[in-house]
Design a protein around this nucleic acid. Structure first.
Lengths: 255, 255
DNA sequence: CAATAGATGTCGTTC
DNA sequence: GAACGACGTCTATTG
């Protein structure tokens, strides 16, 4: 239990229940230094841009990142209630006893204004972090697996092109079957739904149109670990096929 | 500049550069009290579930929310590099001089482990916030506008059903035109792309199939503020129509 | 609980 | 910068 409400070191600064003007100083310092800034307090939030919103007064956590990102988090949900993405410009000013943080985006034009009437904490941190996430189990890795082991689709399938661009979209994997038919494969890393079927249909139709009446047909294959009932029904009505592909994850290495 | 590194009040607690065991205490206290917990420090993060990932050592901001949400934020990007959604169960333990936070999800089974080797700050806050976001400019509001003012689609259009469920998906707005044709409208709040066209095509095909060879045809209309070139081309090839609908936002009230 | 589709989606990639 | 599609998407809604 302490009266001390100000902690400062070379790489960070923390203020407990700061005055508006002290808070303004720390936020501005953090913006200048390209720190990550964390605020906790009572605020209202207004947004105007692609849509518009009003968030009445309540206590939230606000994060400002050096890349221009702004996040306003309520006490629930994974998603920020309001935000601005990387590339925005933030500024802070003390006005009418409030700390007002404004973030501006250009193209599309958007403005986010956070007005704090009271703050429990204001802090800034110089974070160093050169590491990136290593992620396993993505769709593109599924495609790789099939290219290495095409018989998982069917005996005799020969992959030709990954990420084939057509006029109406990108085909995940394009190849031929034993009979010389063209095979279009759409992958889904999770359960495939109606949208996946529509997507596949679009590619198959496009390829049929492009190829015209050549020797051999065009088959459409949806490759996924599972598929919804109605998606499977639609798929069959459209003359398309489903191939069950189990997703395999590598063991997590001890780090 | 102070030696004191601990601040505690009724509704929150902040520790600066705490020991692992002190940090553990505060995090556990915060979990018990259903506080929002904010940690800043050096950590590695492992995730295993629908996919898996490894994030090597670096300094990040971690938030634990009382609904079970966990967020790990790097110094860039709007998205957390790792996370767990609401409904998960978190725990903390000091082990080998590290503070390890584990978050577990059931269905789908997922585990997130954050291992801090050093902490700049650990804090917990009891946030009260009963307010919800008021959002304007959503797709469903676009539909409302058209229901009130159907001539924005075309003279004589009569809306019948919003959110009509068919076997193969939900139609945004279903109605009839002056000639008695069925009209299926798909709305997009932003620029419409190929996916929107495929979606509309699916609904139109379904309705045609359901209706069989009745009097009057089925028209498909894509209503959006803009449309990509290839989407428009595909739309026309499929015999569908585009109607430009300007999105209108209410003026932001001063709050 | 599963399924469906929207989102101020965000993000990466390619043209 | 536009377009296209994935995402550990998340989230709301409805059967």
């Amino acid at each position: 239990m302490s009266e001390q409400r100000h902690y400062k070191s070379k790489s960070y600064e923390v203020l407990i229940e700061p005055s508006t003007t002290d808070a303004e100083k720390v936020v501005r310092e953090g913006l200048l230094r390209k720190d990550c800034i964390v605020l906790v307090g009572s605020c209202i939030v207004n947004y105007f841009g692609r849509a518009s919103s009003i968030l009445p007064r309540g206590e939230r956590i606000v994060i400002l990142k050096p890349d221009g990102t702004v996040l306003v988090h309520q006490k629930e949900k994974r998603e920020p209630v309001n935000w601005n993405p990387p590339g925005c410009r933030a500024s802070a000013r003390a006005v009418d006893g409030m700390l007002q943080i404004t973030s501006v985006r250009t193209r599309p034009s958007e403005v986010l204004v956070i007005s704090f009437d009271s703050l429990k904490m204001v802090s800034r941190f110089s974070l160093h972090d050169d590491e990136e996430l290593y992620l396993f189990g993505t769709e593109s890795q599924m495609v790789e697996e099939i290219v290495k082991n095409p018989s998982l689709i069917e005996e005799g399938f020969k992959p030709i092109t990954k990420e084939l661009r057509t006029e109406y979209g990108m085909i995940d994997l394009y190849g031929v079957d034993r009979q010389g038919n063209v095979v279009v494969i759409e992958f889904k890393r999770g359960r495939a739904g109606l949208d996946a079927v529509s997507q596949l249909k679009r590619y198959v139709d496009e390829l049929k149109k492009e190829r015209g009446e050549r020797v051999g047909g065009v088959r459409g294959v949806l490759a996924a670990p599972s598929i919804t009932e109605s998606a499977l029904k639609l798929l069959k009505e459209l003359g398309l096929e489903y191939v069950k592909i189990e997703r395999r994850l590598p063991k997590l290495e001890k780090a």
